[in-house]
Write a protein that binds this DNA or RNA. Structure first.
Length: 270
DNA sequence: ATTGTGGCCTGCCCGC
DNA sequence: TGCGGGCAGGCCACAA
């Protein structure tokens, strides 16, 4: 599913759209337009603009659009386009995507799944294909509602994100307002690496544990990005009934934490 | 404010 | 072979 590693791959792909002029907007499904944006706004405002940049914050991909002839966006109403991918969304530029295998999604190319697209003057396209409609497109997304990005998270930022919270550690890590970019699979993997139980109160970690967690966040995000997806973790193969911890062989426990299916090792995650 | 829960969305897999 | 139920989870609305 698209977590930070996949969305970063999408961002790099979207750089291929930089410098290109939008000629038309395809709203394949009006339900995909979210966050107070009206489909008609997209159709009315985007054509004629040039893609000036592709940025990522957590799982949000932001395309900066500017009038032709300008290099950077100013505060003059040049729109920002926010793209979210839910758990089954793909990004395609000129018909190609960076990721073939997307856990829980389908590899089929059903035309009806193309929920949103930009057509460029040069004939190319940028398309979001999402079977489940859990993603969405929003004009002027609220980027400040997202916490610091997991890929560049500092120890101080992590300490701030955990705070004195009594919420389960994993729930806190999944909260995009606290830390941006961590989804269910990445959360299980990094907690397994850090040796921390997912249901520990977030504020109960001591200094050494917070340091361990911080290293695990950074290292796990980097590793999964290098390997090519959030589903490529070492815990992943054991995330099934009867699965055993790859580290110590203990039978994994399956629980629900933060409303999400959680697999973890009761032997070494404490 | 913080925390937890339910609903949305639909392809896919399993058992009958 | 077809069918129905359960499952997956990012995000949001809502409740306590």
């Amino acid at each position: 599913m698209p977590e930070l590693p996949e969305v970063e791959a999408y961002r790099r792909l979207a750089e291929q759209a930089v410098g290109r002029t939008v000629s038309a907007v395809d709203v394949g499904d009006v339900r995909f337009v979210r966050g107070g944006t009206e489909p008609a706004e997209l159709v009315a405002r985007l054509p004629g603009l040039v893609v000036a940049g592709a940025r990522r914050r957590g799982k949000l991909l932001v395309l900066d659009l500017v009038p032709a002839g300008r290099r950077r966006r100013g505060g003059d109403g040049s729109p920002r386009l926010g793209l979210r991918f839910g758990m089954t969304g793909r990004l395609l530029v000129d018909g190609r995507g960076p990721i073939d295998k997307l856990l829980y999604s389908s590899e089929r190319a059903e035309p009806a799944w193309d929920r949103f697209g930009l057509r460029f003057r040069d004939g190319g396209t940028l398309v979001v294909r999402d079977p489940r409609l859990l993603g969405g497109v929003t004009l002027e997304p609220d980027e400040d509602a997202l916490g610091p990005d997991a890929a560049t998270l500092t120890l101080a930022e992590l300490v701030g994100a955990l705070g004195g919270s009594v919420a389960p550690l994993k729930a806190r890590l999944l909260d995009q307002a606290k830390v941006a970019g961590i989804g269910n699979l990445v959360a299980d993997e990094l907690l397994w690496r850090a040796g921390l139980a997912p249901d520990r109160p977030a504020g109960s970690l001591d200094d050494a544990e917070r340091r361990r967690l911080h290293r695990a966040v950074r290292a796990t995000v980097r590793m999964l990005s290098d390997r090519g997806g959030s589903h490529t973790g070492d815990l992943m193969p054991a995330r099934a009934p009867g699965g055993r911890c790859p580290r110590d062989g203990a039978e994994l426990r399956r629980t629900t934490v933060g409303g999400r299916t959680t697999w973890w090792c009761p032997a070494h995650q404490r």
